[in-house]
Simulated scan of single mutants.
Amino acid sequence: MKKLFACICLLIIVLGCKEAVASEEVASVSMAAPMENKDKMVDATVEETAPTETQIIRTSNLRFETDNLTDSYQNIQKAIVKHKGTLQNDASGKDYGSTFRNLTIRIPNTSFIPFLDEISKGVNHFDRKEISSQDVTEQYIDLESRMLSKKTLEKRYLQLLQKANKVTEIIEIEGKLAEIREEIEAKEGQFRYLKNQISMSTVTIEMYTNDASQSGTTSSFGGKIWNEIKSGFNGLSRFILGIISIWPFLIISILIFIFIKRKFKKKTQ
């Protein structure tokens, strides 16, 4: 009985030793795992931390008539300052019978609707009022993920560059790094532009007035007659100047006509 108990104890000790050796081998294998597996873990972490918040680009296009362009512009300018926006473009001009002013405004996304509500208060009617929202969440996540993946790849090549000994290997790795860095810069530029479009909404305003005093036109009958007289005089002036500009051709034509006429008279005689 004692011999049997001793054999069982010896068997337990042997099995315990084997398990200890196996655990040490697993630990050594995990410590010596290749960098590629670790990089895969890094990539997985990048994908898991990708933003899930909805990314929206908002734009608006407005067109309306106003009684006073100056007052309307000043009201819009106050709203821009209040909502911390910027006036990106300001163009004005005159059509026959009207004066217009076109504005392009960038407004923080959080103030988009409040800004539209404020500038709409003094408008009786909109000829056009367009508000659009474009969901670019998928594009945002995809672009960010590609950019981070390229940066991870760049780190790998930098590690290989430190270990490289041959000149040919160094040149090849540096060539790959140059390509990767160029792609990273392009992705970063696209990403910055997309983030700017998301954070700052674009509002385009076309406003005009038919007020004769602001447009510079004259609606009286006498004024119209005077404008037609000036138009006719300008037309006559352009005609005379056109004839003067071709005087050499006129002289040559006259001389040829006289020569042909004399020849014809001689033949008839």
Rank of each mutant, 00 (worst) to 15 (best):
L15A: 14
C17G: 15
K18M: 13
S30W: 10
S30V: 12
A32P: 02
P34S: 14
E53A: 10
I56L: 03
I57H: 01
L62Y: 00
L62R: 03
R63M: 12
D67N: 15
S72W: 03
S72Q: 02
I76Q: 03
G85Q: 00
D90T: 02
D95C: 07
P108G: 03
S111T: 04
H125T: 13
R128V: 04
E130I: 03
I141F: 05
L143M: 06
L143H: 02
L158F: 09
K163R: 14
E169K: 09
I173D: 03
L177Y: 01
A178Q: 10
A178M: 08
I184N: 01
E185L: 11
Y193K: 15
S201A: 08
T204E: 07
T204L: 04
T204N: 09
S215H: 03
T218V: 15
S220F: 06
I229W: 06
K230E: 13
S231C: 05
G232C: 12
N234G: 12
F239K: 10
F239G: 05
G242A: 05
G242Q: 04
I244G: 06
S245T: 05
S245I: 00
I246L: 07
I252A: 15
I252P: 06
I260P: 03
K266C: 06
K267T: 09
K267C: 06
T268I: 15
